[in-house]
């Protein structure tokens, strides 16, 4: 059978089977409206605030008093979070962290366990000065070429070649968790945030081993490193919901 006949058979079959799928007559308007809303949002808010708002909408907060240290600097003071309500033991620092990367190093991981999930902040740095790390959320999507041509930096798109100043870009892409974000401090330090919506609540009070996986992708050489970050967690206390819905 020729390719053309195969195409006709499969297309006819699948179109008949999928005939119940209905298009959205207002899709274009929604996309344009959403895009306008996003560009206005980018002018007003930092990426850190967007993440914090998303975390609030999940009904939990990814920050707590002890673990606020690195994230605190990333968030503007206008956030309506009542710091005094955070318990001192809300954050659990892993007993030990081990990993297998040659390209990046990890700072001290901070975790927060609330009713809606486990929130993990992973500071990341390049292991050698010839590299510079970026988060997947820093990339300006451009599917017409590889590597991507622009990076989000301070809510501005700048050419990646200009941003990297001769260094090789290592994109740190989380492969664990239900959602992720990336944040930068004013000093330019990168933190990758992961959320796990349904952690194993039986194990967390007793302590557990948690492995977070990342792919580190060198844009200039196209090489990939598959990284596991192993955390030995002490027993953790689940926090009550600290903010009203």
């Amino acid at each position: 059978m020729t390719l053309y006949k195969e195409q006709q058979k499969v297309r006819t079959a699948m179109n008949a089977t999928f005939s119940g799928l209905t298009e959205d007559n207002f899709l274009a308007q929604r996309i344009l409206a959403q895009s306008k809303g996003e560009s206005q949002m980018k002018k007003k808010w930092s990426a850190a605030l967007i993440f914090a708002i998303a975390a609030l909408m999940l009904g939990a907060v990814a920050l707590a008093a002890v673990g606020w240290s690195s994230l605190r600097q990333l968030l503007p003071r206008t956030l309506p979070i009542q710091e005094e309500k955070f318990a001192a033991d809300a954050i659990s620092i892993p007993i030990s962290q081990t990993h297998n990367s040659n390209l990046i190093t990890f700072g001290t991981v901070e975790l927060y366990w609330a009713k809606d999930g486990l929130f993990i902040t992973v500071p990341v740095k390049e292991a050698d000065a010839k590299y510079v790390v970026c988060g997947s959320h820093d990339i300006v999507d451009d599917f017409s070429s590889w590597p991507p041509t622009h990076i989000w930096s301070n809510n501005t798109q700048i050419p990646a070649d200009e941003w990297r100043t001769g260094r090789e870009i290592l994109e740190v892409a989380p492969q664990s968790g239900n959602w992720s974000a990336s944040l930068r401090s004013e000093e330019g330090d990168l933190a990758v945030i992961l959320g796990i919506d349904s952690p194993d609540n039986r194990k967390l009070p007793e302590g557990m081993l948690l492995t977070l996986r990342f792919i580190v992708h060198n844009w200039q050489t196209n090489e990939k490193e598959y990284v596991s970050l192993n955390l030995e967690l002490p027993p953790m206390t689940m926090q009550q919901e600290l903010l009203p819905r």
Binding site: V10, T12, A13, M14, A16, T17, F18, S19, G20, L21
Partner: peptide
């Protein structure tokens, strides 16, 4: 699991779709 089709589907068409 597929959405209810707008018209009855022949068995062969359903089989090809599921196979793909």
């Amino acid at each position: 699991m597929l959405p209810e089709p707008a018209a009855p589907v022949q068995q062969i068409d359903a089989s090809i779709t599921l196979a793909v």
